[in-house]
Design a protein around this nucleic acid. Sequence first.
DNA 1: AGAAATATGTCAATATGGCTGACGTAAACG
DNA 2: CGTTTACGTCAGCCATATTGACATATTTCT
Lengths: 188, 188
Amino acid sequence: MADVNVSTLPHNPKGDGKGGPNPAQKAAETAGDEGIPAIELIELLFFAYRDFVGDADEMLARLGFGRAHHRVVHFVNRHPGMRVADLLAVLKITKQSLGRVLRELVDNDYIQQKAGATDRRERLLYVAPKGEELARQLVALQTRRIARALNECGPGTRIAARKFLASMIDPESRAEVERLISRAAGGK
Amino acid sequence: MADVNVSTLPHNPKGDGKGGPNPAQKAAETAGDEGIPAIELIELLFFAYRDFVGDADEMLARLGFGRAHHRVVHFVNRHPGMRVADLLAVLKITKQSLGRVLRELVDNDYIQQKAGATDRRERLLYVAPKGEELARQLVALQTRRIARALNECGPGTRIAARKFLASMIDPESRAEVERLISRAAGGK
DNA sequence: AGAAATATGTCAATATGGCTGACGTAAACG
DNA sequence: CGTTTACGTCAGCCATATTGACATATTTCT
């Protein structure tokens, strides 16, 4: 699956004897420590992620931006002075795709570009005040949801969630993601 | 943020005295039980989700399908006999958008339609054998990743992850999502 | 110095997956 | 019988991504 929305549900009009267990169950089966099918986590991950990014989507839409802009502002804010090539590598999109989004952000004073000091071919990217403010607001929004969730859950949840999410990442990428996170987060 | 990819990182060419903590930190701050900034979870959620859906994306691409098809096959498989209107409500897209995807799936024998028994205006949706097999494979793929992650983490992780993810969902939607999950999962 | 590689930008065409508005048809409902 | 409902479809638009080709500056290598 990929982003999905909820709201209403399939009805089951006249209790047509279809209420019980159904397909997709054998495939799910148990997977992990207890005897609960992983399909639960599959769908929860979906809905959780949908609402998680939904917060930002709204704010962005009001500015005429989309998720692509969010990604750029977020990463540039987290890694000031990153090069265009670095951003492309992190986002894994083509420079043509980045081009439009970056241009819009630069034109609207969310992102600044500076030629590299040692290599003037490089365009080092920085958030302008507007971009920093936007990034701050977006992080605050998403932080709020996470804080609420953590508060609702037990005290060990943060650690567990952090570990679980990290384990969900491709093993090959994990080291880089950890580096990306800790580096920007001020990890020394 | 929204879906992002990792791989290389911003370089920091000549140790220009930029290695330390940087912006976006004050905004992150602590949020929850311990003193760790939520921004870690924000980014982990991203990368985890990216790889999570990436599994399916590959398989789908080989069939010429996209995420839209995945959603349809997944939900129809989980809720056999659901109506088009139900699917629209769950996916929260327009019927025009669903139309194309559904037509492709029907034309290629992944999904079957049957007129409703009591209300013949309804088109009840069922997975055809090919669709069931595809849904099974996709769930298996994602289950594998989850199982691996749970195995890597402690025994309590499943419970904690389940709770955390559920708490990340909008409070208003939570009951419906739980219903959606448990109903299809064989909840009586 | 000159050639090659690198970092970036840009033009053009294409695909996917959303959207809105308008209209049509069959069936149920009152 | 008229209205509403469930669904489908035509037509056009938008955002985001893609590929391929090519341009321009600048650095690096020989």
